[in-house]
């Protein structure tokens, strides 16, 4: 019984952690806007924790460059399972407008596995919330498969 409660709780309490990888800030402020009164994601139990050790979902905005790819990998490794990664915006999914710049590695999936891609330049808060929901479904599925 407790096991099923835990399973249910996972979907009800996704704690997010936002990492800005080299974004132009456009997506970042939209992620923050999700927390604010208009969108209020805390309704769904989503909290921005800012510490990978407490987080369930990693939101990554922006392109990966040579310096922050290590940070990104490190943060991902420090998150306890089960976890999901959501790449936000054109840059996070593919490198976007910067993809040919000399210090750019590319999208987030060049470094860590990504579960959900949220498009947009910048992605709108609605899209980000939708992405988190899709991510939760993904990670419920992952937990099932792991059994």
């Amino acid at each position: 019984m407790f096991g099923s409660f835990i399973k249910k709780s996972r979907a009800k309490s996704p704690w997010i952690m936002h990492f800005d990888c080299g974004s132009c800030n456009g997506c970042d402020i939209e992620v923050l806007a999700c927390l604010t009164p208009l969108y209020d994601v805390e309704r769904f139990g989503i909290i921005n924790v800012g510490n990978p050790k407490h987080a369930d979902v990693l939101l990554v905005t922006g392109t990966v460059n040579h310096r922050n790819k290590k940070v990104l990998k490190n943060i991902y490794d420090q998150m306890p399972e089960p976890k999901a990664v959501i790449a936000i915006g054109a840059c996070g999914t593919s490198g976007g407008v910067f993809r040919e710049a000399y210090n750019v590695v590319g999208g987030v999936d060049k470094v860590i596995p990504v579960d959900v891609y949220v498009p947009g330049c910048p992605a709108k808060p609605e899209a980000i919330i939708d992405g988190v929901v899709a991510g939760l479904a993904k990670f419920a599925q992952k937990v099932e498969e792991a059994k």
């Binding site: 407790f2 096991g3 249910k8 709780s9 009800k12 209020d40 805390e42 309704r43 139990g45």
Partner: peptide, 20 residues
């Protein structure tokens, strides 16, 4: 804001207990 349901802390803790 509207805020989470009153039972939210229990979900949080249950989730935490089920983590790696």
């Amino acid at each position: 804001r509207q805020g989470p349901p009153v039972t939210q802390p229990f979900f949080d803790v249950a989730k935490l207990l089920g983590k790696e």
